[in-house]
Every structure is written in C-alpha cells, then in structure tokens.
C-alpha cells in the first residue's frame, strides 16, 4: 500500500535547497557579527573584512531565491478556519495527537504561520540590510534610519533563525517529510495522517 504522492516538483526542490545553502552561508556570516562569541565564524569566510564583504551578497542571493519559491507557495498559505483550529490545539498537535482534530490541507496552521514569519523576516532583512550596506548604499540613508535598521536587521535574523530551527526540527520529527524535499514525494499514509484534506484532493481523480 505504499503509493507515493507528488508534493514538490523538481524545480521547487532545487529552489528550496539553493535557499537552504544560502541561508546557512548568510546566516553563519551574519552570526559572526551578531555577538563577539560568534566572531570566530569569520574564519569560515576568509576573515572579518571578507565576511563583511560577502555577507550582503549572500543575503541578496538568498532573498532572490526565496522570492522565487515564495511566489510559488504563496497561494497555498492563506490562513483558513482549519488553520485556526490547528493553532488553537497547538499542544495536542505538537505531541502527536493530531488525528481528527482538524481537517488539514496542503499545509497546517503552524506551517503557514512559519511561512509568513519567514516572508516578513526575509523582506525586513533585505530592506534594513541595504540601509547599512558599506560602502555603496549606507551613505544614502540618514543616520537615524540606520540606527533603527541595524538592530531591526539583527532582530529579523534572530527570528528567522529560530523559525528555521523549528522548520528543520519539524522535518526531523515528522518522519517521511524529508523525502518530500529530496525525492519530491510522500507516502499515502503520511498524507492521510498529516494533511487529510490535501490527500483527498490529490486522490480524487485517481
């Protein structure tokens, strides 16, 4: 009974992993400046000055690749009543007692919230980052704005990293999820348990 259901196209998977690599590179180079205890991470990028030079380019590339996947997944992430139910019953859902609680579609409430948090953080990171990008753009912005932009950049990064930790853990915890992003498919049992409404939609015509 191990029928497979297609969840992500080849293009979406490629896009996801490009974002993931760039997230790690931009994230590690950014964390190097986040706190003195992380400054040793500059060694991974060829020293402090090189890390400062590379970080914004990695960030812009991450934004661009993220933008591609975001536009594809945007319409799947509108918050519905089922999502509100999921979020109301978050502790049951996070302890594995999810069955019968809500009729989850392609994404559950938690995934959708994470999607929007990621969207907001990524846009904030781009906009605030450009404002203090030396040596090209920083001087075009008033100092008062840069004093807000720099802390906001750090805050958005921290939230995005926290969100990504949750994202990665969810993929580890919910067995059978990683193959959705590696081979593109999930098992019918996985879809029935975690995304029943999406399962019915996908199997309606077969």
């Amino acid at each position: 009974m191990s029928t497979s259901i297609q969840r992500y196209t080849e293009r979406e998977r490629m896009n996801h992993w490009v974002i993931a690599i760039l997230f790690f590179l931009a994230g590690l180079s950014g964390l190097a400046f986040f706190h003195p205890s992380m400054y040793w991470l500059t060694n991974l990028f060829g020293g402090g000055a090189w890390t400062r030079i590379l970080h914004p380019f990695l960030g812009v590339l991450m934004f661009m690749s993220f933008f591609g996947l975001m536009t594809k997944l945007w319409h799947h992430n509108k918050i519905t009543d089922a999502d509100k139910k999921w979020l109301a019953a978050v502790s049951e859902n996070l302890t594995g007692h999810e069955e019968g609680l809500q009729d989850v579609g392609r994404y559950n409430g938690g995934q959708k919230v994470l999607f929007w948090v990621t969207v907001v953080c990524t846009f904030l990171l781009l906009v605030t980052g450009v404002m203090f990008w030396q040596p090209w753009f920083a001087d075009s912005f008033p100092i008062g704005l840069r004093r807000i932009a720099a802390p906001l950049h750090a805050l958005s990064a921290a939230v995005l990293i926290l969100g990504t930790i949750v994202h990665i853990y969810a993929a580890i915890w919910i067995k059978g999820s990683i193959r959705a992003m590696s081979r593109g498919t999930v098992s019918a049992a996985w879809a029935r348990k975690h995304h029943p409404a999406w399962y019915r939609e996908m199997t309606r015509n077969s």
Partner: peptide
C-alpha cells in the same frame, strides 16, 4: 537571542526524546 536559539535546539531534542517520532507509515 543566542540563548533563544540554543534553547530552541535543546527544546527540539527534549521534544524528540519525550514525544518520539511522528511516523505515519
């Protein structure tokens, strides 16, 4: 924020140990 990141990773580990994998198959 660093503490938060560390706590999130540790939280994940504890959650896995307590709740166990969520394996539909």
């Amino acid at each position: 924020a660093l503490l938060g990141m560390g706590a999130a990773m540790l939280g994940g580990l504890l959650h896995y140990l307590k709740v166990g994998p969520n394996d539909a198959d």
